[in-house]
Design a protein around this nucleic acid. Structure first.
Lengths: 142, 142
DNA sequence: ATTAGTGCAAATCATTTGCAATTAG
DNA sequence: CTAATTGCAAATGATTTGCACTAAT
């Protein structure tokens, strides 16, 4: 039950970009909208093909990369490293972790509070600024 | 106080390869030896330049990649993903985690038992086969 | 007009692959 | 001789960059 009624509480992608100091060009808005509504942790290429589809505007590969980097630097999205050779993106910028379903390859967000305790497990010779957990396993379909 | 006396308890790289069913060619032995004695989590390129140095044998980039893949598949080494775009390698094949020192970029191994508890933190809708923690912070120099 | 942003094509970087030459059994 | 391994160079895939073009102030 996530918020997608008609009385739209979610800030528009455009407002989000503005609030982060990123000029909301049509390309950027479309990419941000796509990332905000998917849970698929897409690569740059996946963003391009998904967005090239229902396309209200032309979009080049270079712009996808530019935009992803701009959004990342502005804190609108995060990089996710799960496999060698490609970067995935996630519009969930809350501190959280990932679970890779080894059967389907699906990547599921795991909220931070589930694994919060981790930050305290290392001795005090380590100052932990943050951490990132990548789980591998299977998610119950039900 | 790790084992590096002269009464060498450590199996030779050659024996290690044999025990894993990998034919110990000179190139493979040299690469394995290098990985076994470093804690630097090198990339393929770093392996190449390090080994090209004190070189008892010629070595091409392709062979470095071939060997790293062979050793990985044989379970002699592990991949470590800490940054986009490149793979690092670790001859520590015990189940463990990593700590990236944000000041120096150094990557330190964290033994599994320090964070063991993590596997149990998710609810039972997740069957956790394994997990990988990447810490960011600072290590006390002392 | 000036500046930021886009798109194309070329460049770069890490990695892989095809294939001929080399080595080991 | 046969099979596996190496090395070179070309190919590939992801990402970046140079630069001319366009849009917005």
């Amino acid at each position: 039950m996530t918020a997608h009624n008609h009385t739209e509480q979610i800030p528009s992608a455009e407002q989000l970009l503005l609030s982060r100091g990123v000029k909301p060009t049509p390309q950027r808005v479309v990419i941000a909208e796509y990332l905000l509504q998917t849970e698929s942790h897409p690569t740059a290429d996946e963003v391009l093909s998904a967005v090239a589809q229902a396309l209200p505007v032309a979009l080049s590969r270079a712009t996808v990369y530019n935009t992803l980097n701009t959004l990342k630097e502005a804190g609108v999205i995060k990089e996710v490293l799960t496999e060698p050779g490609r970067v995935r993106y996630d519009a969930n910028i809350t501190h959280h972790h990932h679970f890779v379903d080894v059967k389907t390859g699906k990547i599921v967000d795991i909220p931070s509070d589930k694994v919060e305790a981790i930050g305290k497990l290392l001795g005090d010779q380590y100052k932990v600024h943050g951490f990132q957990v990548l789980f591998y396993g299977e998610v119950e379909s039900g």
